[in-house]
Amino acid sequence: MNLLNDLNMIAEKIYIKAKTVEEAIQAAKSNGDNFCFLAGGTDVLVNKFQGTEEATCLIDITGIEELKNVTTDGNFLKIGSLIKLDDLKKHEAITMNFPALLEAAHQAASPMLRKTATIGGNILCENRCSFFNQSEFWREAVGYCLKCEGDVCIATGGKKACFSKFVSDTAPVLISANAQLEISNENGSKIIPLESIYTGDGINPRNLPKLALIKNIVLPLDKNFKIIFKKLRPREAVDFTSLTTAVSIDQFGDIKIVLGGIDPKPVVVAGSMNDKKEELIKQALKQSRIVDNDYYSRAYRKEMITVFLNQSFEELK
């Protein structure tokens, strides 16, 4: 916690601007554990201001041009991780095939934030909780929760697990469309399902290796997804989600339900046209670990899962 070094000066801070993925990873390597990749930075910098992000080395990756392309590659659409949320709509391949993604992006944060925030950053957005996203002074006063080196979860009144909310607005839509990530680390690139990076542990909600960077988000173009996106929030702008739902159906009648804002990870339920909708909803409810760490109560958010999913099924008809 102490940022002071022996010379009784404030700890030295480093800012590195990487031009390539390799440069970024190299810079990360040479800064041990004490670094943070910075895309738009709209969340990271607020967390830094509040002291929940303590890296003294920021590696700014916004100069890496190769991460700013949207391309089609056979039956796949590749969205560069540095595409800004506000710029997604500029790409016809996205507007034509994934309008729900635009809707999700448009409902994230506020217009000005969307001009800086990137889609890669959005899917990696740190989990949030009323008891975590606070200043150092505040967290000390509340007695530090599990997510910041405390002993228990305060939101639940003392549980030994962290239930910080997964809050990305775009990720549920992407997962509902079977999105995959093209990841680079020091050993090269690989493709993994987006869904697989979320651990469900509120303290360490993602399992991406520390040195890894997302290059592209890869979406299948041959499934003809129809996706319904919904977001619960008190205001029509600025707010993080209290509940996000994305429900997709593909040309084969396969259904995928993805929930955000009600669990440390996206809750995913797969099924098909022929399944009973109530059964699918039941499964989704069962998997959601909602706690009182939001503007709306736990009970209401739970109730809204059913409402949103039923509405989505109606709209998919």
């Binding site: 800012y15 930075g41 910098l45 920021l58 000005m112 001009k115």
Partner: peptide
């Protein structure tokens, strides 16, 4: 809000070094 290279940004969460 200020404009940087023709794009508006929120300067309170934008590192100057960028």
């Amino acid at each position: 809000t200020v404009v940087v290279n023709n794009e508006p940004v929120l300067s309170c969460i934008t590192p100057a070094m960028r």
